[in-house]
Design a protein around this nucleic acid. Structure first.
Lengths: 216, 216
DNA sequence: TAGAAGTTTCGAACATCGTTCGGAGAAAGT
DNA sequence: ACTTTCTCCGAACGATGTTCGAAACTTCTA
């Protein structure tokens, strides 16, 4: 059982996509709903035209308004990216917790194997999201403190998983993340939709476990 | 002696940074010189404002002309990126050949160690160049056939090096590149200017060599 | 229910961007 | 000296993110 390690900064409960806490007034619920629609359309457009190809006029059109109207929901274009970034981090966290909870008692190597695969498949499932979350590619965008905290939290979850598996040396943690992201990156960049590097994942984890001296 | 192999398309000989082949007419030499100046200024600006932050008006100003004048040297902004991409690939190839030539007869593990380190240090030395060459981040830019051929050539050099060291299994080649790029990417993204992942490089190569069953 | 307060929408406009066009001026070739 | 070629740039086009202000709509309060 994984208890409440959640209640730190903001975005307390797992609200599946909302940035603000759950609204009470009807007007606020409508507003939050529109925000969700905008973000959903933004994801679509980014997948169509690339992350940097997002146009506010086109985005507005897709949700039935003009570009300036978007500014009553988000302070800027980068604020939209920031909300998407936060959504991605929350989705990854939920996936981590979900997988960890479903696993129960599993040998340490299985723990690392499933951790690596969870990350890998999460990234491969949505390359644009991966680019936004892990590759600092948009020139003006930088995640806000709140969103960055979510990323830190996810790193902490990873570190906890590794520690639980007996990996304590920081060098080993770094090597593990490097190999996982390396395989992921190659897969997305050089064989999108395929499994050329996906097939190497289990072997790589096994190799690292040997190197770390972990039991089976 | 380099005779008149000029009349083909372009880029035949090793001209260390020029895109077109070595010009004979004075006017063409002047033109090539201006192209080099533009590219040099473009590198500078990209390092200052990020790869996507390059502005043609600002670029023109830095080389003493207005933005439209750049169009007599490059067909478009993406053509400038393409020339920079090609420059990067040529620089990496030269670095590869230079290191390989200096090595002479070296045990296979040393070969792989120095190959990985060459790549790593080349990338870390200029993150913007790395982003342009290896991360598909600019939405409209795609390397031209000529430039892409340089990238393929570099991959071939890498493959040859691995083969010479006894690594023939394609899965092993893929794993090697994934680990090398993974360490590189983490270093650039999460510890720029530091050596947090650089220190792991030799260990990682050694680990892979063990896994490949290579002699010492 | 009437009016005040707050919120949402959008046309117009600004600065900036990559890019095109056309003409002026310089350089090169004959 | 004449012609051809090339270089440079002001003006302008369409697109971008963003701001402003005035309407229209919604919500709250007397």
């Amino acid at each position: 059982m994984i208890e409440n390690l959640v209640t730190t900064t903001d975005a307390s409960t797992t609200d599946a996509g909302t940035t603000d806490s759950v609204p009470v007034r009807a007007i606020d619920r409508r507003r939050a709903q529109t925000r969700r629609e905008i973000l959903e359309a933004a994801w679509e457009l980014c997948r169509e035209h690339g992350l940097a190809g997002l146009s506010l006029r086109e985005l507005g059109e897709r949700v039935g308004m003009r570009a300036p109207s978007l500014y009553s929901y988000f302070d800027s274009k980068d604020a939209i990216y920031d909300a998407m970034f936060a959504e991605g981090q929350r989705a990854l966290r939920d996936r981590y917790l979900q997988v960890t909870a479903a696993l129960g008692d599993v040998p340490v190597r299985g723990l690392l194997r499933s951790g690596a695969r969870t990350f890998f498949e999460f990234c491969v499932a949505d390359p644009v999201r991966y680019q936004l979350m892990f590759q600092r590619t948009l020139p003006t965008f930088e995640p806000s403190a709140e969103s960055y905290a979510l990323a830190v939290e996810n790193l902490a979850i990873l570190a906890t998983t590794l520690e639980r598996a007996g990996v304590t040396d920081p060098r080993h943690v770094d090597l593990f993340t490097a190999v996982a992201t390396g395989l992921t990156d190659q897969q997305i960049s050089n064989d999108p939709g395929g499994d050329r590097w996906a097939r190497l994942l289990d072997d790589a984890v096994e190799l690292l476990c040997d190197h770390f001296g972990l039991p089976y």
